[in-house]
Amino acid sequence: MTDTTNPTHAARAHRFSLRSILNNAGIGLALLAIILFFSVFTEHFLTSNNITNILTQITINLILAVGMTFVILIGGIDLSVGSVMALAAVVAGKAITMPGLGDGEAIILAILAGMLAGVVCGIFNGVVSAFWALPSFIITLGMLNIARGAALHISDAQTIYSFPFAFEEFGSAMIYGIPIVFLVALAMVVVAWFILNFTVFGRLIYGIGNNEEAVRLAGHPVFWYKVGAFTICGLCAGIAAIIYMARLNIASPIAGIAFELNAIAAVIIGGTSLSGGRGSVIGTLLGAFIIGVLANGLILIGLNDFMRQMITGVVIIIAVILDYYRAKYASK
């Protein structure tokens, strides 16, 4: 990397700063505290079966949140990921149940079709919001409806089912008690971490979130970087759809309702700033764990549904308040 424009340089300095390490350490400590709490107060929490369950349960949210991290880092938001996931699932479901295909062909076709559906929606979100400089909040709200409507239309509102056995196997397979689907998500975190920290594209994602004008004046095609961020988010929704199908062996057009909110929550709890430019995908990983561990532990402890929902809400608000102090500290 010979690129030494200002935003890039500033962001790179940030990467290795004590502060950024402390940020993630703070979230990690919060996660540890929650884990400790549940380990003491419930007997089943720290069992290998339950840990496997937690890993499986956070997989889809984690994948969606990885994509969401890119969009939030550029100062945008993507409200459509839950619906896009449903659309990708339905498209992949139609592909995998297409008559006259061998199991292998059907699975490969489904995976490609699902990812393509996600990518197309992501490109649309990116191009429309970046070209006219419109708030992505509104554009992706539109896409939320377009994708959900398309999913319902294509599937005729019917649940698609009965997939090849090998596909189902993949959804429940494990290596040393770790679900393969979780390893897929973890691999995506690593790839995203690499992209964000060690490529020009990644560093400029931070740069756009910090000071879009500076990146533009430095001669970078901001438009395409923004489209790139939304495309990655769409691709993640497509991959989440494939995982969803493999896990449950169905493709439902009403899947993923409000999943975008959980994904955004994971990113924000993970310390990424809603105004962009600051945060990390490692934080997102920890944020997804906090949400998943809470959801799991609060059931094990026997708390009722409504209390559970309230506590999740409180955690999100605490995370945003912490983010306020982080931002204040960072601006000094």
């Binding site: 089943h44 069992t47 339950n50 369950n53 959801a295 059931i299």
Partner: peptide, 18 residues
Amino acid sequence: WETEEANTVFSNMLTANP
């Protein structure tokens, strides 16, 4: 009413009540 949520919620109920 949702498949994925039932999958998650019931897995956890099963852990708590094997």
